[in-house]
């Protein structure tokens, strides 16, 4: 079996475990390439169906074409979408674009808190998230099934053992579990899989006329494109094979302070 098929089979196994073990399961869909690959894998696992709702945390600062793309796929793939938004904070204007919050604080309220609100509202106990170990160092410590306590906190230093594909599926009331079926993939694997499966990704990933493309997608005030001439999936793959620049280099919130991101992760950020 080739390497991509191995990754795929493992992810399908994890998705099916999650579906079986959690009555209230949802998948986070950021519209980016990873969570779209994840969505594709869910359709693989469930024979063309997606048996759980997708949660999209809308900061209202997303690049507009992302929302169009989201709504199109929802219709074509028959998806159930739940949108979460921190209206209170948005109204108060205490955001980074509003000039009243740092980038990390803004992520904290518009993403993390909004997510917590929507998880609480729907009483989701399992949340599937498309993070990968190779994204940045804190994620490297993740497990496939990663418990969060009542306050969504992640105890990095005392994680459950995980071996032989027996995952943590028992947990105290009030806690929930993050499920990471893409944990063992790399950025390159994701693109290779997109190529193999012909998965429709949002065009923002491809170079525009000005020789720029997005490598990682987020809110427009905090995400900048990289210099690139890669216009096709194959060209992106060729580019990634050579690069030594980290994927999230275009994501400004990661850079605010060395520990800021790790802190945000511990507190329940995806």
């Amino acid at each position: 079996m080739d390497h991509l098929s191995k990754l795929e089979n493992q992810s399908i196994y994890i998705l099916r475990e999650a579906q079986n073990k959690f009555d209230r399961l949802a998948m986070l869909w950021s519209i980016g390439k990873d969570s779209t690959v994840l969505l594709w894998l869910a359709r693989k696992a469930f024979f063309g169906h997606v048996p759980f709702p997708l949660v999209h945390v809308d900061t209202t600062y997303k690049i507009p074409s992302m929302i169009e793309y989201r709504d199109r796929l929802c219709k074509e793939w028959n998806l159930k979408l739940v949108v979460g938004r921190n209206d209170e904070v948005l109204k108060s204007g205490v955001t980074y674009p509003g000039g009243k919050a740092t980038r990390v604080e803004c992520c904290g309220t518009l993403k993390k808190d909004a997510l917590k609100q929507i998880l609480d509202k729907h009483r989701f106990t399992g949340v599937i998230v498309g993070v990968r170990r190779d994204e940045e160092p804190t994620r490297a410590k993740e497990r496939y099934f990663s418990p969060r306590d009542k306050n969504m906190e992640w105890n990095v230093d005392d994680q459950p053992p995980e071996f032989w594909d027996q995952f943590k599926t028992d947990f105290a009331p009030g806690a929930h579990v993050r499920i990471h079926p893409l944990l063992h993939w790399t950025e390159l694997n994701v693109w290779e899989y997109i190529e193999r499966e012909n998965i429709p990704v949002i065009p923002l990933y491809f170079a525009n006329g000005a020789g720029e493309r997005y490598r990682s997608l987020g809110c427009h005030p905090c995400t900048s494109p990289i210099k690139s001439h890669a216009r096709t999936v194959a060209e992106i793959i060729a580019e990634l094979r050579l690069t030594k620049t980290p994927e999230r280099s275009g994501r400004a919130q990661d850079k605010e302070s060395e520990d800021a991101f790790e802190k945000l992760r511990r507190d329940g950020y995806m």
Binding site: P137, A140, T243, K244, P246
Partner: peptide, 17 residues
Amino acid sequence: LQSERDQNITIDTAQIW
């Protein structure tokens, strides 16, 4: 390397390729 990762080095302490 990790603490200098802002200076454009892909590195990861817990999984190394």
